[in-house]
């Protein structure tokens, strides 16, 4: 192994790293969609009066938030096949990310829902709107825009946690970087470039979120 930065090697491995990054981005995108959808369901169920459902969801959220993502990913990938559910690395990884982050996004939604003034619920009740319309037409359109920045922040932290999924064999950008450095005995270029790729995406994303924050704050 020689010291110094080899530009030729760096350029040569970029395409492979880019393919790895695409997997990272895909896992983040799908994981976020799952976390947004599921978190919303958790939050709405917790506002409902069906006590059993409410408690089940509450217990699950508490439990799931108190255990590490890595353990959850292992369980989904390696234990679920024992009960007949076999998932590939990407599917298992997306499910792990989505479930894990749903427990956080549900709290975000809950705060947004609680910020909708009681008068809005009362006006909806006074018009005899069915429950589905109270949620879809009145409450959520007011609650969700307010929490978009907070949701955006979770997307960014999810993006940075995707490399954990190398533990279940997901070939994302850090896995690619490790493979490259094992083949060439040059860890500096692949790992540095992987880090830079994360920075190139995370930083602009956080600027966007901050802008969004300022906009919703000003409203």
């Amino acid at each position: 192994m020689t010291g110094g930065w080899d530009w030729a090697y760096a350029v040569e491995i970029l395409p492979a790293l880019w393919r790895g990054l695409q997997v990272t981005l895909l896992a983040t995108l799908l994981g976020s969609l799952l976390a947004f959808g599921l978190g919303l369901v958790f939050a709405v169920v917790q506002r409902n009066r069906v006590a059993v459902l409410h408690r089940v969801v509450w217990a699950f959220v508490q439990f799931w938030r108190s255990t590490p993502l890595l353990v959850q990913a292992y369980v989904i990938y390696q234990v679920l096949p024992d009960v007949g559910i076999t998932l590939g690395s990407l599917a298992a990884g997306v499910l792990a990310l989505g479930l894990h982050y749903a427990c956080y996004t549900s709290e975000v939604y809950r705060a947004g829902i609680e910020a909708v003034p009681p008068g809005q619920w009362e006006a909806a009740a006074a018009l005899s709107l069915p429950r589905s319309r109270v949620w879809l037409a009145v409450v959520l359109p007011q609650a969700v825009p307010r929490v978009l920045p907070a949701l955006g922040n979770y997307v960014i932290s999810m993006f940075k946690e995707v490399p954990l999924l190398l533990a279940i064999g997901l070939v994302e950008v850090v896995t690619v970087a490790r493979q490259l450095s094992a083949e060439s005995f040059r860890p500096v270029e692949p790992l540095t470039l992987a880090g830079i790729l994360f920075l190139l995406i995370s930083y602009p994303a956080s600027v966007v979120v901050r802008r969004l924050e300022r906009r919703t704050g000003a409203r």
């Binding site: 009362e122 006006a123 709107l129 037409a137 359109p141």
Partner: peptide
């Protein structure tokens, strides 16, 4: 009719007026 009006801020005036008549 409420003291604080409680119009739905996410809808136009028209939206406020037709939501319940169409849905209910």
């Amino acid at each position: 009719v409420f003291q604080q009006f409680n119009l739905f801020p996410n809808m136009s005036v028209l939206g406020n007026l037709i939501e319940a008549p169409t849905r209910v």
